[in-house]
Each structure stands twice: as C-alpha cells, then as structure tokens.
Amino acid sequence: MPKVTIDGHTIEVPEGTTILQAARMIGGDVTPPAMCYYSKLKTSGGYCRTCIVKVTKGSEKDPRPMPKPVASCRTTVMDGMEVQNNSAPDLLEARKGVVEFLLINHPLDCPICDQAGECHLQDLSYENGLSTSRYEFKRREFEKIDIGDKIKLHMTRCILCYRCVKVADQVCDTRVHGVINRGDVAEISTYIEKAVDHDFSGNMIDVCPVGALTDRTFRFKSRVWFTRPMDAHRDCKTCCGRVVLYMSGNEVLRVSARKDQWGEVEDASEGRAGWICNECRFEKKELKDWTVEGPRNIDRHSVISQNQYLEKKNLRIDVSNQKQIEEKAHN
C-alpha cells in the first residue's frame, strides 16, 4: 500500500487512491477544496482547479518534484509521494487566483440566491478568496431557463463544474443536456430548452455546488438557515427513500438527498450512492409521507451547521402530533 505525506501528515492508502481522497482520509485543514470533483460520479473532477496541490516529491522511485501544480482529484498517489497543500504559500496564492477566476463572472447575488448558506463557492471564497474584486467589466449574463416544471437553470451563476452533466450521463439513462458553446460563454443547456424528464433528474440540483440549478418547488420559500433539517425516510419503489427534510414548523419546504461533510450524497446501502427520485424530492411535501428519524447534523462549515436544532431537546416537532398524522393517513 502506498504511503503519502500531505502537509507533514503521513497516511497509508489503497492503490489507486487520489491525493484528494487521501487528504480527505486525513481530514481537517489538509483537505484541498473541490468544486467539480464528486466521488460518486465517474470521470468528474479536474476542471475547476481549486484542488491543485504541489507535489514536492514524485515517489520513492522517482523523487523528482512535479513541475506544475497538479489537480489532486485526478492524480493518483504514488508510494513515498510528498504533497504540500496549506504549507506552500505560492500554492495558496495560485489557488487564490483560481477562486478569483471563478468569481469574476459570478453575479454574487447571494442575497437573493437559494443556495446561499449551503453554497460551496461561498465557502471557497470565504476561505481562499480576496475580499474585493479586481474585475471591473460587465459580467457575463444568461437568461434563466426552466428545464422542466421542477428545475430552474440560472446559468449566470454556473461555474461549469460539469457535475450535472455527469449526473445526466451516469444516473439518468438518457442525457438530454450538456455544454454548448465554448470559452467564457459556454453554457449548460438542454437542446432548445427541452425539459429534462427523468426519474432521477432532480439529483442535478443536489450536485450543483452553486445556485445554478435550483428546486422550483423551494424557490424563494425560505433561507436555508431558517429551516430545520431532519433525517427522514419512506418506502420508495424507485429509490432508497432516505432523505433530509428542510422544515419550517411542520411544513416540509424542501427535500434533498443526504449529504456528507464533503457535500456529496451518502451511500444508501451496499455502497450504492443514495440518489433520490423526483417523486420523493418534488411530490412528497407533507410530513405524513415521511417517517422522521431526527435532526440532521449538517457537517459542513456553512451557516446551517451553526443552527440551534442540533440538540434534541430543542426540537419543536411534536412527535405525538406526527403519530396522529400517521394514524390519520392509515385510516
């Protein structure tokens, strides 16, 4: 098993592990940020360049350092490799540059964006970005598109991570959307605004790291940090049925898949990714549809994790009330 040292932490990892995965195994500050990599989607990663790291020693056999910073999400670990992430100031400077590039055409409309509070780009720019923008030109703009009656595509916010394209490719069986045009006017689009119609198409909302793809049933309903995330499940024929409900009072505002600390969907069972179907996501918006398990600990450094619902005693859901609802549903 190859041994890799990242910022002075040494870890032994299985063959074929990427530097990013190894860093996630170590955890903490060592982990480079990743905007486009998604471990559940094959061939994802390598596009956003935020996860770049400096390889100071290639391997035990070939100790030469790599000449350029490499994308840690797509570079496999070699035995004896030494990697610098936070300990290399020039690398942090380079990453700052990447964050700036991602932000120059981003509208920064966080106050009216549904993703605010759980946005990876917000976290990224908070941790690695500059406090002001040096860009003084008109930002790129696109028309908003409805792809189907449930998903809104707001291309202006997109950072072209290609995750939703990979979802359409790998989770859905037909791909009806992709990237058209090139350069800084490249956009995610369906062919002539065709609706995306597939049982699992809603997962592209979950994988979107920014507010480019949002849930039309949740749009402008609430800020996420005012909602109470609750683990819940139901017996679903199409998907695993394990979800998080974002609630306000006893009202279910939004349903999403369960995400881990890296913002990726959790495994459901037997190593299968816990993608949820559109019926669970968009149709089942009543508490009686679900069996609530308890409060969800959102394990990301975003504002939701700071909310006050983590302690069970503060729960405002009346369990007896829910039982009554369930009984009524049975009758």
């Binding site: 596009y47 360049r49 590039f101 120059i104 055409n105 030109f137 350069g183 490249a186």
Partner: peptide, 21 residues
C-alpha cells in the same frame, strides 16, 4: 485565445477573456 478557449477549466476560461478586456 479568448475566442478559442474551450471553457473546460476555470483559469483559461475566465482569464483569457479578462486579459482581452
């Protein structure tokens, strides 16, 4: 280069246009 950037990775996609402007 701004016109010909494929738009896949962010430094080239955004940076070439910025330099041109």
């Amino acid at each position: 280069y701004h016109h010909e950037s494929c738009g896949q990775c962010s430094p080239c996609r955004e940076g070439t246009g910025w330099m041109e402007k």
